[in-house]
Structures are given as C-alpha cells and as structure tokens.
Amino acid sequence: MPVISAAAVEELRLKARKLRQDIITMIYEAASGHPGGALSVLDILVVLYYKVMKIDPGNYLDPQRDRLVLSKGHACPALYAVLADRGFFPSSYLSVLRKIDSPLQGHPDMRKTPGVEMSTGSLGQGLSAANGMALAARLDNSRRRVYVVLGDGEIQEGQVWEAAMTAAHYRLDNLTAFLDYNGLQIDGWIRDVKSPEPVAEKWRAFGWHVLEVEGHDYASLLKAIGRAHTNKGAPTIIIAHTVKGKGVSFMENQIDWHGRAPNKEEYEQALAELQK
C-alpha cells in the first residue's frame, strides 16, 4: 500500500517547486549563500515539515513539538523557505536574508529565527544537540521525535562519530538522522577530497539502523521515515541520495554552486526553469 497518494505527491512537487524559487530568490537578493546544498536538502525538509513532523507554527515553542536540527547549517535557505511557507514567520523575512539586523542569519540562529531549533553552521555539532533533545524527550516520557540533517562532507568531522556512538549507546530510537548525500563538498567530490565510504557500513557498524533512499522521491522518503518510526532500540539514519543544485539544470552536480549567488542572468534562467 502506498504511504502517499499520487495526488499528494504532486502537491508536494508543486510546493517544492515554489520553495526552490524562494531559495534562489533569497540567495540572489542576499548576493551570497549556498544554493547547491539548499536545493539538495529541500525535498527531505518538505516531507518532514508538510507530512511528518508534529509542529504548530502558531505555538512554535510548544514543549511537545517534534524538533529538527539542520546540522548542515549552510543549507538554511531551504529551511527558511519552508518555515516561512509553514507560517513560522512572515515571508517578507526572506528578502532580508544575510542583511544587517535580519532575523535570518547566514547560518541558523535559534535565538533570532522562529522555528530554528538549534544554532548551527560550525559543521559536526548538530547530531550531538539532537541526541540531547532525544534524551530529553525520553526523560520527559514524551513521544515527540527528533530529526537531524547531516551533510555528506560534514561526516568528515570527528564529533559526528562521537555522537553516532552516543545515539546508539543510548538506543535513541526517537531520533532519525538524514544524510544529504549529494557527493560534493567545497573542494570537490567528497570521494576525492577525503572519502567517507563505505558510508552505510560505517553507520551500521556504529550500531545504527540504516536505510538508503532516493532523496528527491517523496514516497520513498516517507516510507523510510515510517520504518524509522517503528524501529526499536536503535537510531535510524536515512541515507538520502540527492543531487546538489537539484532543480536548476546548470547548478546540478556543479561544485561551483556550493557557495555562490547567481547573477541577474543566471537568476532569471534558474527562475524560468523552476516556473516551467
């Protein structure tokens, strides 16, 4: 039985198309930022924020809410676009990304942006914080869940593996991690810079329940999340195979688009593609 109807998938696809336009527009207006990773991670966030997470934008500090930590903080334009669309803050915020006095910082700031659960940006730290949130949920005897999104380059940080041991040791089955496996980091393909492979085997060896999906396929993502929810006694990581720059032809799989803004011509071309 499909976990999501074809009509619902189409709805998400249209939503993601609009959010991708928001991402490109934000970064164009900010004249800096990280489009590649924001576009690769977006569909994971779309599934979580529109279909999975128990959250109430009108009461976003509800102690019983689900939490998401965007450990790869540089992808925050995707998170901001989603949070604005879900009503955590006015969409007018998007136009002041990275500008002076802005509620939307260049990397996520939990004290400035409603809906941001943890300040991130210094890579490698988000999984530890998510573990703490999952431990807190357990102490509270709460069924709330914690989600964390890691970058593939990010798992070169040693702290990630310290945290991986912690989550397994404490059997944090209320925690689900996502690996945005787009294969690229700033200096090139991660397999060339410093390969983290074999990725799935590593997480399995660290005691995790490991699933692999196509990271832009909503039905697959939802199915994997469902399996994560029912898995007991171990945390789950969903290795999401994604495309850096997904949705904009000239950005896809191009490392040049890790951390630069489009110029006017590129912006218009990207928008035209996303409006098709």
């Binding site: 573990n131 949130m133 702290q159 912690t166 040791h169």
Partner: peptide, 19 residues
C-alpha cells in the same frame, strides 16, 4: 565516554529542551 565535544553538544540539546 571520552568524547568531550559530543558531551558539550548533547548538553546543549538537553538545555534546549528545558533541562
């Protein structure tokens, strides 16, 4: 365990949840 960096981050997550 002997992983202080992770310990600090875990503490941050616990504090973010009211502990």
């Amino acid at each position: 365990g002997i992983s202080e960096a992770d310990m600090m981050g875990t503490a941050a997550g616990l504090a973010a949840s009211g502990y």
